[in-house]
Simulated assay, not measured.
Amino acid sequence: MAQEQRPVGWWVKRLDALLEEAVDAAVAPEGLTRRHWQVLHSLAEGDAGPRDVLRDFSVDVGPVVADLTARGWVTRPAAGALRLTEDGAAAHDRVWRAVGRVRRHAADGMSRDEYERAVTVLARMVENMERALGRG
């Protein structure tokens, strides 16, 4: 089967697997996984409750939050809240550079317009499927 004839689901799953592998490799020197990165990045955008951080994940990231807390990178300043510590913010900044290289590789050869269109199309497809499943 020619590449162009593969269904969109195949491409989405293949891209996700490759991103998982690349981000895991990029953050491994810090002893992290892609999930750690995703939680760190979510928290870098500001304080959040555990539900806010967990909302976008299809897996339980509770153990990741516990690990980041044990490292001293995440604190619980109030009931139901999570916040990066100073050390956590510094770790986020270090890891951000490595993840940025992965992102640049993923978009290599694409114009900013092409990348934005690809994201827009994928977002629209997600919305369509959520609506079709009665979730949107």
Rank of each mutant, 00 (worst) to 15 (best):
M110Y: 09
V126I: 05
A2C: 13
E130S: 07
G134W: 15
W10E: 06
A132C: 02
V39G: 10
L19M: 13
R135T: 01
V61M: 13
A44P: 02
E130Y: 12
Q5V: 07
V59Q: 13
A44L: 12
T69R: 12
A79S: 14
D93Q: 08
D56A: 12
R34W: 14
E4R: 15
D108F: 07
A17P: 05
P29S: 04
V99G: 06
A26D: 12
L54N: 11
Y115G: 00
R83I: 00
A118E: 04
V39Q: 14
A107R: 13
W37I: 05
R6C: 06
R35H: 14
L122S: 01
M125L: 12
V126C: 03
L15G: 03
L82S: 05
V102S: 08
A107T: 03
D60R: 14
V99K: 13
A106E: 04
R135N: 06
D47K: 07
P63T: 02
G62A: 10
S58I: 03
L68N: 04
A44C: 12
N128H: 09
S42A: 15
T75V: 08
A28Y: 08
L32I: 02
S58C: 07
A78K: 14
L84K: 08
D52T: 07
A28L: 12
P63W: 10
P77Y: 09
V102Q: 09
E127D: 10
V53T: 09
D16R: 12
K13N: 10
E127S: 09
R112F: 02
R51G: 10
P77Q: 05
Q3F: 15
G136Q: 13
L68H: 07
T85K: 07
R35Y: 14
H41C: 08
R101Y: 09
V74F: 09
Q3V: 12
A25Q: 15
V8K: 08
G49W: 13
G72N: 00
S111D: 07
E21C: 10
R131F: 07
H105T: 05
A25R: 15
A90F: 01
V8Y: 08
V61P: 04
A17V: 05
A28W: 10
V8A: 08
H36I: 09
V61K: 14
G136M: 11
L84V: 01
